[in-house]
């Protein structure tokens, strides 16, 4: 019965359905931005060790790291786990979606990592990222109140 029904589906439509499914499995790698905070009450070499560990963790789960940016020790805007500052690391990578669950699970266990934030980039964010790389992000305060001098005639 099922085959009969399938036979009635126009060939063109059926094949197009098939291809979209295929491309979906191929496109399963996404672009991610990942920021985490390392516990500041550690020795200098421990920071490096944790960063290497996270990088390895991502690569082991089929991710490709694009950029790692260590912001270093920064003060918090509020007290977090009775600490005043933390070691920030911001990074960008591509990885399959399933890898994220594993990476986050590992970091939740890790006592050295205080907090993390994973963002999956959509088309708009990717375009913004391209601008960021070229250093062409528009400054929203560049055009400061120039309509003050404008006269409206109505």
């Amino acid at each position: 019965m099922a085959s009969l029904l399938l036979g009635k589906v126009p060939g063109r439509l059926f094949s197009s359905l098939k291809t979209t499914k295929e491309t979906h499995t191929e496109m399963s790698k996404n672009y991610y931005e990942f920021t985490y905070i390392i516990n500041p009450v550690l020795e200098e070499d421990k920071f490096k060790e944790t960063v290497d560990k996270v990088n390895k963790l991502i690569e082991d789960n089929g991710g490709e790291i694009e950029e790692v940016d260590e912001w270093g020790l920064r003060p918090f805007a509020y007290e977090m786990d009775s600490k005043g500052n933390g070691f920030y690391v911001n990074m960008y990578f591509t990885a399959p979606g399933e890898a994220i669950a594993e990476i986050e699970r590992q970091l939740r266990i890790d006592d050295n990592v205080m907090r993390y934030l994973t963002l999956k980039y959509d088309a708009k964010m990717l375009r913004h990222r391209e601008l960021q790389k070229k250093n062409e992000v528009p400054d929203i305060f560049a055009i400061e109140d120039e309509e003050d001098n404008e006269e409206d005639d109505d």
Partner: peptide
Amino acid sequence: KNQRKVKQCKFTRAGLEYIDYKDTETLQR
């Protein structure tokens, strides 16, 4: 009459598509 100020979205004017959480200087405004 000539003091009437038309409010306009700063993000739209700059053509920004995504607001970055890392850009705290802008967010602070």
